[in-house]
Amino acid sequence: MAFLGLRKWPTPVVKPLWTFMVAGGITGYLVYGAQQSGVRSAEWRTDARNPYAAQIARESLH
């Protein structure tokens, strides 16, 4: 008998979707790496539109 719509055995959610969660994490990591390499490229390193220009300049002094 269902009590307030809850079953005795819960419906599996994580088990069938673990591959998509892992793929999402890998995709996020690769996009982050591409963004970091693009921001730190020689073309964009000193560009005024780069929000990380000051941080990159400070790191290059050390």
Rank of each mutant, 00 (worst) to 15 (best):
W9N: 14
I56P: 00
G38M: 14
E43H: 01
G25F: 03
G25W: 08
V22D: 00
P12W: 07
A34Y: 07
L4R: 15
A34H: 04
M21G: 07
L61T: 14
E43T: 11
W18P: 00
K15Q: 11
H62D: 14
D47Y: 03
L30A: 13
T11P: 01
N50L: 09
G25N: 09
R45W: 04
V13H: 07
A23S: 01
W44K: 11
H62G: 15
T46A: 11
R7W: 14
G33P: 01
A2T: 08
S37C: 02
T27L: 14
G28L: 05
Q55N: 06
T19V: 09
P16Y: 02
I26E: 04
A48F: 03
V14R: 04
F3N: 11
A48W: 09
A23P: 00
R7D: 15
A42P: 07
L61M: 09
I26G: 01
A34K: 11
T19H: 10
P16Q: 02
Q36G: 05
A34V: 10
R45P: 01
L6D: 07
A2Y: 07
V39K: 06
W18Y: 04
R58N: 13
E43F: 02
M21E: 07
G24Q: 06
W9Q: 13
E59V: 10
D47G: 01
R58I: 14
F3Q: 13
A48E: 13
R45L: 09
T27P: 05
R45H: 12
V22N: 00
V31M: 13
T19L: 14
T11C: 02
S60F: 05
A54V: 11
A42D: 15
V39W: 13
L4A: 06
F3C: 12
R40L: 07
A2N: 10
G5E: 10
T27Y: 07
K15N: 11
V22E: 00
A34W: 10
R40Y: 02
A57N: 13
L17H: 02
A2P: 04
T46V: 02
D47R: 08
V39C: 03
F3D: 14
K15F: 08
T27S: 07
V22F: 00
L4E: 14
I26P: 02
A53Q: 09
M1L: 04
